[in-house]
Design a protein around this nucleic acid. Structure first.
Lengths: 205, 205
DNA sequence: GTCTATAGCCTGATAGAC
DNA sequence: GTCTATCAGGCTATAGAC
């Protein structure tokens, strides 16, 4: 009595819906998005879309859930056996690359968190906290060994998140200030962030 | 034939509405907020609220406009005659203090910008850009004189915005990770940011 | 100036033909 | 599986009594 395996068409339509929904939710927020918009962007009628997902809420939940794991992978990859400075700079680079490649996902999360994280608060205070605490302990160990300059490790992680995601979440402002939609801020952003974290974490000696 | 001067009651009600609207808009976004919510929070009936403002849109516009100036004051205060490092660190401190004291205003802007800044895009690419360019030139001058270590001045300004506003905009996540609503992240955040920008901008010699 | 009542629109979701 | 038609609820805004 298993659910029937999805056909190719079902897979394709579900994928198209999620892709369209990511677009719409990330730019208008949950409440600002309409099912009509998502359906149109996915090339389906509204009732047809609701044949694939039971509700607007369900689409949103699927997106959040599916992305959350991917979103934390760069932090998970921080390797205790690596060279500390290289590890941190690689983490920053991965996170910035995610902002560049997946700005819609970044904005989806930003929206959710700014509005009080009603749907993922639980995960933040359990899974995310656990992961961050573990990696903060690793960073602190490196600092105690004199392999990184000492700073508060939790705030160090916050700073990496905020500095990298800024280029996705506030991308409109970045382009407005830098002078137009054609400018690519990422090369300079990457150089700036490498400098910033090198100088911040370089041990004295 | 001037408009009559507002009575005390009118002033008080308008202020109450704006205060309530800031609360509701900043946590639910424009679309997520309802006039009913705002009216209830302001202690008025819905039609009565719409006697003071012609529309929901008008309340939102008033808030954005009124806040924008205040929001940029800390950057305007960056003083060419001051000591460079002191000036930058003071700017960071002022900006962090604004996140602490006015988190709702910060989230209001964050919402607007994440959603593509439909109502303030013009201001961003004219007034804001002009101000940032001017202050970036000032910073660059200090770097050329060897009074600050060289970095891209525009990205330096972005980094100050993102690092300080993070504690207001993503405050739910910060508290979830640090372990509860009772924790005050600002003292450690302030110390962390002073360290960060000192090490980033301290000239070599 | 403030209320009750309601118009009128939009939106999420369902019914039912094909 | 996909459509047209439509319902029910919630929303902004207005009308009109007081």
């Amino acid at each position: 009595m298993n659910a029937p395996a999805p056909t190719r068409i079902q897979k394709k339509n579900r994928a198209a819906i999620l892709e369209a929904a990511l677009d719409v939710f990330s730019t208008h927020g949950f409440r600002g998005a309409t099912v009509d918009q998502i359906a149109a962007a996915a090339g389906l009628s509204k009732p047809n879309l609701l044949y694939y997902f039971p509700s607007k809420e369900a689409i949103h939940a699927t997106l959040l859930e599916r992305m959350l794991d991917t979103w934390l992978d760069p932090l998970r990859a921080l390797d205790p056996r690596g060279e500390p400075m290289d590890e941190v700079l690689a983490y920053v680079a991965r996170k910035l690359e995610m902002s560049r490649s997946y700005p819609r996902e970044s904005r989806l999360f930003a929206n959710e968190i700014i509005h009080g994280a009603p749907r993922i608060h639980q995960v933040l205070s359990t899974d995310l906290k656990e992961l961050v605490d573990k990696k903060a302990a690793l960073l602190l160990g490196w600092m105690d060994q004199g392999r990184l300059a000492p700073v508060d490790p939790h705030h160090l992680i916050f700073s990496i998140w905020s500095l990298t995601q800024h280029y996705a979440d506030f991308n409109v402002q970045v382009h407005a200030v830098l002078g137009g939609p054609d400018i690519d801020p990422y090369p300079e952003a990457g150089a700036f962030l490498r400098t910033l974290f090198s100088r911040l974490l370089q041990p004295d000696d």
